[in-house]
Design a protein around this nucleic acid. Structure first.
Length: 915
DNA sequence: GCCCACACGTA
DNA sequence: CGTACGTGTGGGCA
C-alpha cells in the first residue's frame, strides 16, 4: 500500500536566492524598477474596496493586495533585473521642518489603511525585494538618488510613482510610470510625453510645478497661473531663474500676481527639488531580482489569505506549486511485524539508517500508554503492536528502541512517557522535530506535525480520522491508525532532513543535541514521577476557601442590599460605577476596570464595605478554584503529574500545564496554604527547594559587563542596597527601605524595557521624578545603559536576539513602522536575552543535577522546575549529598562574570522547603 | 461548543 | 506606556 502525500515541492528545499532574469549575465542592460511605496499603496487602497479584502482577524488588506498585484504585473510586463521599493517615514523631513504646512491639509488616513504599509514591507521581505526609507527624507529623494545611480551605471530605470514630482527625473535612461487612477497599464512617461503634456522638458518640470503649485503637497502656486502660462514663461526666459531675473518685464495681471507671490514660488522650488546624492543603505547590486523566500511567502500569504496572488507569484518566478519527481515523497508501505525474527530482519536491513519512530498511545488514567510503534525509513516501514507482541518480539523492539540506532521522533518526551508503562525507553534520538522546529522559529503557536509540515514542506496531511489519506485501511483492524503513524513518521523524517541545514545555519544544532533533547528525557522522568499531594489537606483547604468565599459573598450582598454575580466584571461595573456611583477607574475596552489594584485604591478612597468583601471574595474564590483544579489533577497514584511544554515560551523557558505548577501562590499567607498541599512522598525524607538568587540581575551584570554591578556581586553585597547607595549618593547603611524598593523596581524593570512612565506609575511618583531616577541610575551604571542600547541596535541589524547559549529569538517588528509594534519588539529585545539566558542556565543545571544523581547512584529525584527553582525529593540519608550536588550543579551551570548564588531549603512540604 | 475579554497566580 | 506564561469565569456568538 502506498499513500500519496500531496503536494510536495522539491524546489522548496533547495531554491537558493538566484537571479530570475538572465539579462545581466547576457550582458544586456540592467533594468531597475524603483517604486514609490506609499504613493502606490494609496493608489491600490483607493482602487480596491477595503470591505472585500480583510483577514479573519479584521486586518484590511486591500492596499497590500493591490500593491502586490501591481508589482507582479510590473515585473511580468517590464521584466526588470533589479527591483527596489522606497518608503516615506512618518518622521519630520527637511521639507516639513522648513515649511510646517508641507503636505498639510490632507485628509486623515482612513482607518482601514492602518497596518497595510507594514504588511507590504513584510511582503517585500518575503519576496527578497529590498525596501529603503531614510529618516528625514522622503521616498522621492531616495527615488531621485536611485535614478541617478542607475543612470550613472548605464542602467535603464523605471520609476513607478503617483507623485508628479517624479517627472523631473525623466531622461533618456529614466522613465516614469504614473498610474492615473488605480492601477492600470498605461505606458511609461518619457521626455516626449512630458513635453506633450506640459509643454516643458522634464528638467524644467520642477520650475513649472513651483509656479503652478501642488495641491497634494499643500504648496500654493501663483494665483491665475496655470501650466500653460507657466510653460510659456519658462520657454520664453529659459527657466525659472530667467523668469525671476526678468520679473519686472512680465506684464498683465498674472505678472502682478507673480511678483506678489514670488516668495511662494521660490519656496516651492526649494521644496520640490529632489535630492539626488543621498547615501543609501542598499547598493544597486543588492536590488537584483531574486526568487522569493518561499517559506516566508507561504506563511505570510496564508495569514493574509492571498491565495490567487500566491499562485501568480510562484507562477511568475517559475516555481511549481507541485513537483513530482517520480521518486521519494511517497509514504512507504508498512508491514505489521508480529515476530521477533521479522523485526530483526527489518532492523538489520537499515542498521545505521535514520529511522523515524512514531508511538501510538491510548489513555491510561490521566497519562498515556503506548499501544504500537511505527518505525519508518525512507523506503520501508514496520509497525509493532505492543499489546499482542510476545516476549521475544517485545525484547527485540525494546533493545533497539533503547539502543544507539539514530532516530527521529516528533515529541520525544511524550513518546518516552507513553513507552515507560510498557517498560521501554528510547535512545539514540538525534532529532525531535517539535524541538528543532521550535529552535528554528521559537514564537510559533503550534509545532504540530501537520502545521510544521504545511509550513516547511508544503505538505498537507490531516490527523488520524479526519483525513482521506488515513482512511485507506479501514478494513484492517487498526490499519488506519498504523498507516497514519507511518505517515507521521515519514513526515518527521522529511522535516528532520529539512531542518538540519537550518539548525546549522542558526548555530542551534548544539542547543538541540546538548540541551533540549537530553532535557526532554529529564522532563519526561520528572513528569512521570509527579509530586505527592496531601488529600486531607486538599479537602480541608477546599472547605476553608469555600466557606471564606461564601462568607465574603454574603457580606458583599449585605453591603449593597441585593445579589450580584461577583465573578462578572460586567455586573460589577454596574454596581460600582452606576449604582454606588464610585469614582471611575482605569478605562478598559468594556468600560472601567475592576482589577485588584483599582479596588484597593477605591477602598482606600471610599472605605465602602462592598469593596472589602469583594476583594476578600476574589482572593478566596481564586484560591478555591485553584485547589479544585489541583484536586481534579490528582492521578490514581495520589500524585500530580504536570506537563512541561518545552516549545511554548519564545524566550526558551519551560511552561507548565495540566495543571500549571509554576503559578502556585507564595506571596500571600492564605496562598501559601496551597503550597503546603505539596508534600514529601511516603518513604522519602523531605522535599528540597533550591533557587537562584537574583539570576536575572546577575545575567544583566554579566551581559552588560557593568563594573559597578559586577563589583557588588563579587563582594556579595545586597545588590539593591548597593545600587541604592550609588544612585542616591548615600552610604549603604543609609539606604532606606523606600530607596531600596525604588531601585529594586527599576533594576528589574530595566530588564523588561521599562519606561519612565511605567516606573512613575509603579512607584506612584511623577514622571519627572522617575526620569531623574533613571538618569541617576544610568549615570552610575553606564554599562547597563550601553548594553541595553546595544542590544536593541544589534537586534535591529541581525533581526534577532541571542542568549548566552546562542538561542535566538527573531524580532521582525523592530523595523516596523507601527510604533506600538516596534516599541513592543524593543522591550522584547531587551528582555529575551536575559530571560532566555536564565532559562538556558537552569536547563543546564537540570541536566547536571540529573546526571549527578544518576552517577552517584542516589535515589533522590527531581520533581519540579519553576523557572529559577528546582524542587527535589530526598531519599533518607541523602540530604547532604543531594544538597551539595544541587548547589554545585546549579552554581556551575554557567560561567558568568558574577557568581551564581543558590539558596536551599528543606521541609516536609513545598511551602516548608521554601524560605 | 468556540472565542474573546478580564482577572490573577507565578518567575 | 515592564517580559514570559496558564487557567478560570462570564458573556456573546453560532
Amino acid at each position: 500500500m502506498m499513500t500519496r502525500l500531496a503536494p510536495v515541492s522539491e524546489s522548496a528545499k533547495t531554491a537558493p536566492p538566484t537571479p530570475v532574469s538572465a539579462a545581466t549575465q547576457d550582458g544586456e542592460t540592467p533594468r531597475l524598477l524603483v517604486i514609490d511605496g506609499h504613493s502606490m499603496a494609496f493608489r491600490a487602497f483607493y482602487a480596491l474596496p477595503p470591505e472585500n479584502f480583510a483577514t479573519d482577524t479584521g486586518q484590511h488588506t486591500n492596499a497590500v493586495h493591490g500593491f502586490t498585484s501591481m508589482l507582479l504585473t510590473m515585473i511580468r510586463q517590464q521584466k526588470p533585473t533589479h527591483v527596489v521599493v522606497a518608503f516615506d517615514l512618518d518622521t519630520p523631513t527637511f521639507r516639513s521642518l522648513e515649511y510646517t504646512e508641507y503636505k498639510g491639509g490632507r485628509n486623515k488616513t482612513p482607518e482601514e489603511f492602518y497596518g497595510q504599509i507594514d504588511l507590504i514591507i513584510k511582503v517585500m521581505a518575503a519576496m527578497n525585494i529590498p525596501t529603503i526609507s531614510v529618516d528625514g527624507f522622503e521616498a522621492d529623494d531616495i527615488i531621485a538618488t536611485l535614478s541617478v545611480q542607475g543612470e550613472t551605471a548605464g542602467w535603464d530605470v523605471l520609476v513607478v510613482s503617483g507623485d508628479r514630482d517624479a517627472f523631473q527625473l525623466i531622461t533618456d535612461k529614466v522613465l516614469v510610470l504614473y498610474p492615473k487612477k488605480g492601477i492600470s497599464d498605461i505606458p511609461p512617461m518619457d521626455a516626449a510625453a512630458v513635453e506633450a503634456k506640459y509643454f516643458v522638458p522634464p528638467n524644467r518640470y520642477s520650475d513649472l510645478a513651483a509656479l503652478v503649485g501642488e495641491t497634494a503637497d499643500n504648496l500654493p502656486g501663483v494665483p491665475g497661473v496655470g501650466p500653460k502660462t507657466a510653460a510659456k514663461w519658462i520657454n520664453q526666459y529659459g527657466g525659472l531663474e530667467g523668469i525671476l531675473d526678468n520679473l519686472d518685464s512680465i506684464g498683465g495681471k498674472v505678472g502682478e500676481s507673480l511678483r506678489a507671490h514670488v516668495d511662494d514660488v521660490k519656496r516651492n522650488r526649494r521644496l520640490n527639488h529632489l535630492l539626488r546624492d543621498m547615501e543609501l543603505p542598499v547598493a544597486l547590486d543588492d536590488m537584483v531580482l531574486q526568487a522569493p523566500d518561499r517559506e516566508a511567502v507561504e506563511e505570510l500569504f496564508d495569514a493574509l489569505q492571498f491565495n490567487t496572488l500566491r499562485k501568480r507569484l510562484f507562477d511568475l518566478f517559475g516555481e511549481e506549486e507541485e513537483h513530482d519527481d517520480g521518486e521519494g515523497h511517497q509514504v512507504p508501505a508498512h508491514q505489521l511485524v508480529t515476530e521477533a525474527a521479522a523485526l530483526k530482519k527489518w532492523l538489520a536491513a537499515g542498521k545505521a539508517t535514520l529511522t523515524a519512530v512514531d508511538v501510538l498511545s491510548e489513555p491510561l488514567g490521566l497519562q498515556r500508554e503506548a499501544v504500537a510503534v511505527a518505525l519508518v525509513r525512507a523506503d520501508s516501514a514496520a509497525v509493532v503492536e505492543l499489546g499482542t507482541a510476545d516476549e521475544a518480539l517485545d525484547r527485540q523492539l525494546g533493545t533497539w528502541l533503547a539502543g544507539d540506532a539514530p532516530k527521529v521522533v516528533h515529541e520525544y518526551k511524550e513518546a518516552l512517557k507513553a513507552l515507560a508503562p510498557r517498560g521501554h525507553s528510547l535512545g539514540g534520538v538525534v532529532d525531535d522535530t517539535s524541538l528543532s522546529g521550535y529552535l528554528i522559529q521559537p514564537d510559533r503557536r503550534s509545532y504540530d506535525l501537520p502545521d510544521l509540515s504545511q509550513m516547511h514542506l508544503k505538505v498537507t496531511f490531516a490527523a488520524a480520522g479526519t483525513s482521506d489519506a488515513g482512511q485507506l485501511d479501514l478494513g484492517l483492524e487498526g490499519g488506519a491508525r498504523f498507516a497514519d503513524a507511518v505517515q507521521r513518521g515519514y513526515v518527521a523524517l522529511l522535516l528532520s532532513e529539512h531542518f538540519a541545514p537550518m539548525l546549522a545555519e542558526r548555530g542551534a544544532a548544539t542547543l538541540l543535541a546538548q540541551l533540549e533533547l537530553p532535557l526532554a528525557a529529564v522532563l519526561a522522568q520528572m513528569e512521570l514521577t509527579g509530586i505527592d499531594v496531601s488529600q486531607e489537606r486538599l479537602d480541608a483547604l477546599l472547605a476553608d476557601f469555600t466557606a471564606a468565599m461564601n462568607a465574603a459573598q454574603a457580606a458583599a450582598f449585605d453591603a449593597i442590599g441585593h445579589e450580584v454575580n461577583l465573578g462578572s466584571p460586567k455586573q460589577l461595573q454596574e454596581v460600582l460605577f452606576e449604582e454606588l456611583g464610585l469614582p471611575k477607574t482605569k478605562k478598559i475596552k468594556t468600560g472601567y476596570t475592576t482589577d485588584a489594584a483599582s479596588l484597593k485604591a477605591l477602598l482606600e478612597k471610599t472605605g465602602h464595605e462592598f469593596l472589602a468583601q469583594l476583594m476578600a471574595h476574589r482572593e478566596a474564590s481564586k484560591l478555591k478554584q485553584m485547589v479544585e483544579t489541583l484536586k481534579k489533577s490528582v492521578d490514581a497514584d495520589g500524585r500530580i503529574h504536570t506537563t512541561y511544554a518545552q516549545n511554548v515560551a519564545a524566550t526558551g523557558r519551560l511552561s507548565s500545564n495540566n495543571p500549571n505548577l509554576q503559578n502556585i501562590p507564595i506571596r500571600s499567607e492564605e496562598g501559601r496554604r496551597v503550597r503546603d498541599l505539596f508534600v514529601v512522598s511516603d518513604g522519602y525524607e523531605c522535599l528540597l527547594a533550591a533557587d537562584y538568587s537574583q539570576i536575572e540581575m546577575r545575567i544583566m551584570a554579566h551581559l552588560s559587563g557593568d563594573a559597578g554591578l559586577i563589583q557588588a556581586y563579587a563582594q556579595g553585597e545586597d545588590l539593591h542596597r548597593y545600587v541604592g547607595s550609588h544612585v542616591f549618593g548615600v552610604a549603604p547603611e543609609e539606604v532606606t527601605s523606600a530607596m531600596r524598593s525604588k531601585v529594586k523596581a527599576m533594576s528589574y524593570g530595566l530588564a523588561y524595557g521599562l519606561t519612565s512612565f511605567g516606573l512613575s506609575k509603579q512607584l506612584e511618583i511623577s514622571v519627572d521624578e522617575a526620569r531623574t531616577l533613571v538618569k541617576d541610575y544610568f549615570d552610575r551604571f553606564g554599562g547597563v545603559r550601553d548594553y541595553l542600547r546595544g542590544v536593541v541596535e544589534q537586534a535591529r541589524i541581525d533581526g534577532f536576539t541571542s542568549t548566552i547559549e546562542g538561542r535566538r529569538r527573531y524580532l521582525p517588528d523592530l523595523t516596523s513602522t507601527d510604533r506600538q509594534l516596534r516599541d513592543l519588539a524593543e522591550r522584547v529585545a531587551l528582555n529575551s536575552p536575559i530571560q532566555g539566558s536564565a532559562a538556558d542556565i537552569i536547563k543546564h543545571a537540570m541536566l547536571g543535577v540529573a546526571a549527578e544523581l544518576d552517577k552517584q547512584g542516589l535515589k533522590s529525584r527531581m520533581l519540579l522546575q519553576v523557572h529559577d527553582e528546582l524542587v527535589l525529593e530526598i531519599w533518607p540519608g541523602e540530604r547532604d549529598a543531594v544538597q551539595a550536588l544541587v548547589v554545585a550543579q546549579m552554581g556551575a551551570a554557567a560561567d558568568l562574570l558574577v557568581p551564581l548564588e543558590v539558596q536551599v531549603g528543606v521541609g516536609s512540604s513545598w511551602n516548608d522547603a521554601g524560605h
